[in-house]
Simulated scan of single mutants.
Amino acid sequence: MTSAGAAENDTYVLAMPAPTSLVVLPQWITPGNTHPNSRYQEAMWSMALLIDNPGTRLGKLHWKNCPEPLRDQVKLAAWTMINGQLRPTYLQVRGVQARSRSGAPDMAATCLEWMRLARWLHERQITSLGACTETEWRAYASERLPRVSRDTAAIICVRLTNLWAFDQLSARPSGITRPPWESGGVDDFLPAGGAAGGGENATEPLDPLVLGPLLIWAIRFVDDFADDIMAAWAERRRLVAVVAATKAEPTGWAALEQWLLPMARDGHALPAYMDKREVQVATGLDPEFWTRVMRLVPA
């Protein structure tokens, strides 16, 4: 048990955030990253300020997906992970690949895994992470892990362990129990390995005569189109900013209706976008408007 005075002097324990606190503290934001910062009290957190690679999807955390009784506890652990670092003593026993901080995509995936656990606990009328004991950990692992591959299950175990680790570094720990695979070993919790186990890549390697030209053309593609790619990315960001700053007005809705409704009546293709490798109708508009449009789409 850590005393209150010791916790105050512990540089790894973060101060309690206020409702208006920034989701990403300034020390983790790269100069030049101008994405808007979310506030702790908001129902959606943007991870964009932690992402500098233009090819990486700008993730978001939607807290509506976390049950209300457990939301504040999971939210605090998530904020601590975003702005804190794991202790060196914690990392020393976890191999050379262990890191005090992970990247934004992994943080987002970790938070989604925590929300999944919270929903499972909520379904069993458990309203506090502190009530997640070894019994609950084992029951959840027995349901969650057999549904995925062995490698994915190992990653899930790490993410769930991080909930316990970052909870200890928060200003108001929930007291969630240490997962049982931390003391007894994770192997017993993982599904059996496949026939090609051992981590070896069984794919036939490409012949150098094939790989060489591919590499040359990949380099040429980047060299020849780099300016166009960056210009397109800048233009996309400009258009997104314009849309975000433009307020919808009746004249605009009328013009959109005049353009879109004839397309729906005549069975023409509607505005769409790619999501999870599927083409979906662009439903970012007013739901009532889209209800009117979709009634006109031929079955």
Rank of each mutant, 00 (worst) to 15 (best):
C132L: 03
I155C: 02
S100A: 15
T133F: 07
E200R: 12
R138A: 08
G193V: 13
L129V: 04
Y90Q: 08
A118P: 15
E113K: 00
T135W: 13
S142E: 06
G175H: 05
R87Q: 02
A196F: 03
L112R: 14
G84W: 10
L91T: 08
R99H: 04
V93F: 15
C132V: 12
T127P: 03
R178Q: 07
W164V: 06
T135Q: 09
E143K: 11
S100C: 11
F189N: 11
Y140G: 02
V93H: 14
A104P: 00
L169G: 07
V96M: 10
E123G: 15
S128W: 08
Q97P: 01
P191L: 09
V93A: 10
E136Y: 08
R144V: 10
A192F: 14
P191K: 01
R116I: 09
W181N: 02
A118H: 15
A153H: 09
T161P: 14
A154K: 07
A196D: 00
I156L: 12
W181M: 00
P173G: 11
R178M: 05
Y140T: 06
T89C: 00
A196H: 12
E134C: 12
I155M: 11
D188C: 06
Q97I: 07
W137Q: 13
P146M: 05
G194R: 10
A131S: 07
R99K: 05
R150A: 14
A154N: 03
G130P: 11
C157E: 10
V96E: 11
L145S: 00
T89A: 06
T89W: 05
L163I: 01
W120E: 04
E182W: 01
R101N: 06
S149Q: 02
A153L: 10
C157D: 05
A165F: 09
R150T: 15
I126H: 05
M115F: 15
I156C: 06
L86S: 00
Q125V: 03
G194H: 12
V96I: 14
A171K: 01
L169T: 04
T89H: 00
L121G: 04
C132M: 09
T127V: 02
E134D: 09
A108D: 10
V158K: 03
T133Q: 07
Q85D: 15
Q168A: 04
L117E: 14
I126C: 05
Y90K: 03
E182F: 02
E143H: 09
G198A: 04
H122T: 00
G103C: 13
Q92R: 11
W114Q: 10
G84K: 03
E123C: 12
W164E: 00
R87H: 06
A153F: 13
E200Q: 14
I126E: 07
R87I: 03
S174P: 11
G199Q: 00
P88F: 02
T127H: 03
P179T: 12
M115Y: 13
R172P: 10
P180Y: 01
G193H: 13
G198E: 03
